[in-house]
Write a protein that binds this DNA or RNA. Sequence first.
DNA 1: TTAAATAAGACAGATCCTGTCTTGTTTGCA
DNA 2: TGCAAACAAGACAGGATCTGTCTTATTTAA
Lengths: 316, 316
Amino acid sequence: MSKSQRLVQLIMRINSLKSFTVQQLAGEFGLSARTITRDLQELSELGVPVYSVQGRGGGYRLLQERMLPPIAFTEGEAVAMFVACQSLNNLSALPFDEGAESALHKFYHYLPADVRERIDRLKQKVAILSPNRTMNPECLRTLLQAIMIRCVVTIGYSSSQGVKERDIQPIGLYASGGYWYCPAYCFLREEVRLFRADRIRSAVLNEAMEWREEADRWDLRNRPENVDTNPIPFTVSLTRSGVRQLESDEWFGPFLVVQEDGGGKATIRISTENMRFYADHIWRLGADARIVEPAEAVEYMQRKLESLKSVYDTNE
Amino acid sequence: MSKSQRLVQLIMRINSLKSFTVQQLAGEFGLSARTITRDLQELSELGVPVYSVQGRGGGYRLLQERMLPPIAFTEGEAVAMFVACQSLNNLSALPFDEGAESALHKFYHYLPADVRERIDRLKQKVAILSPNRTMNPECLRTLLQAIMIRCVVTIGYSSSQGVKERDIQPIGLYASGGYWYCPAYCFLREEVRLFRADRIRSAVLNEAMEWREEADRWDLRNRPENVDTNPIPFTVSLTRSGVRQLESDEWFGPFLVVQEDGGGKATIRISTENMRFYADHIWRLGADARIVEPAEAVEYMQRKLESLKSVYDTNE
DNA sequence: TTAAATAAGACAGATCCTGTCTTGTTTGCA
DNA sequence: TGCAAACAAGACAGGATCTGTCTTATTTAA
């Protein structure tokens, strides 16, 4: 094995040890202690954060963070990662710390001048935006950490009754429609619930509480709120403009049936407790959509209409 | 200079040349041709996609893509990039090609087993979602490409009058509220307009048309649609629940004034042509919000109410 | 005080790297 | 067709670097 290959191997080996002595490595690699000493010195000069403790019980330690061996990327790979991470930066709050930024710096540093120029042009022009500027990225980071290491979190959650403390076991984290959501097992309600992350005002890991196994089965393809029990049909009829507005809708889009006159219909199956949610969703379309069934939803819309009408009537 | 350093230098040098001969490099590096030959052979074995053309006028060429010299990352950096890109993967359509994916593979490959396990746990649990599954990632990619290389694009755009072809000069690309938007100079209307990317059914680079310089001044902080000319005040009064719904709203959130009783008010300044947009935005809140001014918006809401009312009345 | 650890210099021998020379092959051009 | 320009690859000597051994010094915990 050549020396440079050996150095890469050495990085991998010392990554997997929290502490080691020169003799030990010399044995493992079949080399003399002097050579290993020299290698470690060289790695240190190359930026591997290794330090030594002299004296009995001493040895070498890795400072802070483990390192990966040097990896060669193609230009396309670097640009793709760069643009992806860069565009995320405009998401007001992100659960990642400075790690991503320093990695971007490394990529940027090695890119040839012409590619750098092209990337600079994209920097302020491609983004994934989140309108929500009120939330604390520290909370997101804590939630992410909790998912990774399987830990219960004590949060301060702002509901309509004010901010209350509760223990949750976060089992996922996703951004959708400009908001972060955190599905979690709630120890207060003793069930899996969906929390709006911007309503989580504080989050602290609570290592004292025990992790419940059932949460591990959850993933994005199998969201508990999507599993409707006892589903009923929910049908809307749409004008031409209504069709256009719903055609790329998350829920109704896939079930849209367009008629010859340009209008359309869509029927989805929902559980009764979510009726209001879908009715409110349709409400946004105004006169371009009419709920056909269930009757409760039609009534709900009519009540909503009356109450809004009274809001404007009393004030004229 | 040590051999390994020299190889890194060599990668950089050959990246900046499309074609070169051994003699040439031997001169530049002050080494013999034989040594350079051997170095190139070694780089080739390490995966640098270099190939040779024999005969007069021949030489070495770089196949496909330029490569970056090997870069060492810390574990934290790798995890941050990995999770960031991974979570983006769930965004139904992304403007990046396989580049990001193969880069992720490299990171994953070098990560120690325990970190891999933690990442696996996150994979299906953290995401940035987009509800819109109808759009073509190929279009996004073309638009991104066009921004990078400054090129006009011919698109098929679906408006209320059907799909029409038009030439645009894309000047940005962003995702917000689950949709991709593309601000672009429109050659048809001769002004900068905002296009919904999911309504762009096809996109082809049109290298024949000339690029207009004024588009380069645009960036995300200086969006043309935010520059309202001749602004008028737009005021809503809110119930307690309305306050809660608007507090992290993109437009009204920052201007919310909460009263002692829990209700609130918000006044923003808009241009008259956007009145309907903001009124429709407030419409969503139902009876939890009442538009106070301008009078045109109040009338608009009342007309919308009447038309929705008639939709349900005629059918009972 | 001692044992176990790093730190670092010196030096010979081993190994690898480099340059030179050589023979071959491929390819475009005159 | 033959020549010149390019790569391909072997051989070998000399040089450079790496490695192992030996050594001395220092640090630290037991």
